[in-house]
Design a protein around this nucleic acid. Structure first.
Lengths: 162, 162
DNA sequence: TTAGATGCAAATCATTTGCAATGAA
DNA sequence: TTCATTGCAAATGATTTGCATCTAA
C-alpha cells in the first residue's frame, strides 16, 4: 500500500520476472546479476557495491553478500578466491577455465587447457576422490610487468596484498 | 608431556643458534618452526597457538603471525590457502605438490604429478607470464565420505566453512 | 649497547547475523 | 496476506599495527 520511492530507492523495480528458482526476484538481485554479467568476469563484492552506488542504487553490503551466496547456491555464479585477495564472482560458464594474476598490475588472465581436465581425472581415479571443485591459480608477473623490473617495490605494496 | 613447566615463561630459550639469515633466533621462533615441522604439513595459526599453549608456552597471536610472515619471506615455509579456510603453513619442500580437501571429513590429501609442472610451463610459454606461485587446489569428497552419502548435511556445517 | 622482537590491546577488513521494517507473489 | 528479503548496526574471526617493554647478539 505504499507508492514508489522517489529518493535513493531502487528505480528499476520493473518486476520483469517472477521467481528465480523459487526465490523472489528482487530489484537488488536483478541489478547485481546484471552487474556481474557486464563485468565480464572477476568482480568482487566491494566493486559491486561501488558500481551500484554509481548507478544511484544503494545496496547494503549485507544484501550483496546474501545475494552472492544465493547465486552460488543456485549455480548462477562461480566464486573464486584469487590468492589472498577477496572473492571474485563470475557468471557460471560450462567451460573449465582457471586464472593467473599479475602481482604487479593486478591483471587477471584466464587460462584454459585440456591438461587441467586430464590432471583432475587422473587424480580422481588414483585417489578415489570425488572432485566437486577445481581451483588452479597462478601468481606471477605478466609480460609487460616482467620487463619493468619494478617487481620488488610493487610486490610489497599493501594495495596488492589485500 | 605437560606440567613440567611452572612458570609461563619460555624455557627452551637455549640460544642453541645464532642468527637466522640475519634475524635473531628467538625462543618463540624456534618453537614455532619446531611445531610446524612436527605437524608434518598443514598447520594453521590457531593450531600453532593451541599447541604452544599446551606445551606451557604462551605465544601471542601477533607474534605468531609476525613469525609466519618472516618464515615466508625467508623461504622457510610455504603458505597455502585451502578453500575459504584460513591459511595453512608447511615447511618448504623442493617438490611440487598440491592439495585436495574433503568437504566432509576435512582430510587433506597431497597430490603430485608431472602434469602440473607441464601445465605451468605451457601456460608460462604461451602467455609470456612469469609464474612465481602455483596453487592447485581440489575440493570434493574422499573415498570414505563418498560412500556415507551424508554430504549435504555435513557440507553445510559451519564448522567446515570457516 | 642497540636494533629488532615481543605482548597487549586496539584497529582493520571482509563477511555474517539479529532484528525490525519492507516488499514480492 | 504471508513469508522472504532488505537495511542497519552490531558481531565475528582472521590478521595487522602502535607502542612500551624486553632481549638476542
Amino acid at each position: 500500500m505504499r507508492g514508489y520511492n522517489t529518493s535513493m530507492k531502487l528505480r528499476l523495480s520493473r518486476k520483469q520476472s517472477g521467481k528465480m528458482q523459487g526465490h523472489p526476484m528482487t530489484a537488488q538481485r536483478r541489478l547485481l546479476l546484471e552487474l556481474i554479467k557486464q563485468a565480464d568476469g572477476h568482480i568482487d563484492a566491494r566493486e559491486l557495491y561501488r558500481l551500484a552506488s554509481i548507478k544511484g542504487e544503494l545496496i547494503s553490503p549485507a544484501t550483496i553478500y546474501r545475494s552472492l551466496n544465493l547465486f552460488k547456491t543456485l549455480g548462477l555464479v562461480d566464486e573464486r578466491r584469487l590468492g589472498k585477495m577477496r572473492c571474485y564472482y563470475e557468471i557460471k560458464r560450462p567451460s573449465d577455465h582457471q586464472h593467473m594474476v599479475c602481482n604487479c598490475c593486478g591483471k587477471i588472465i584466464e587460462i584454459e587447457s585440456p591438461l587441467i581436465r586430464k590432471l583432475v581425472n587422473k587424480v580422481q581415479n588414483e585417489h578415489g576422490f570425488n572432485v566437486t571443485k577445481v581451483e588452479f591459480y597462478l601468481e606471477g608477473y605478466c609480460e609487460q610487468c616482467s620487463d619493468k623490473e619494478t617487481h620488488k617495490v610493487v610486490w610489497k605494496s599493501p594495495k596488492n596484498r589485500r
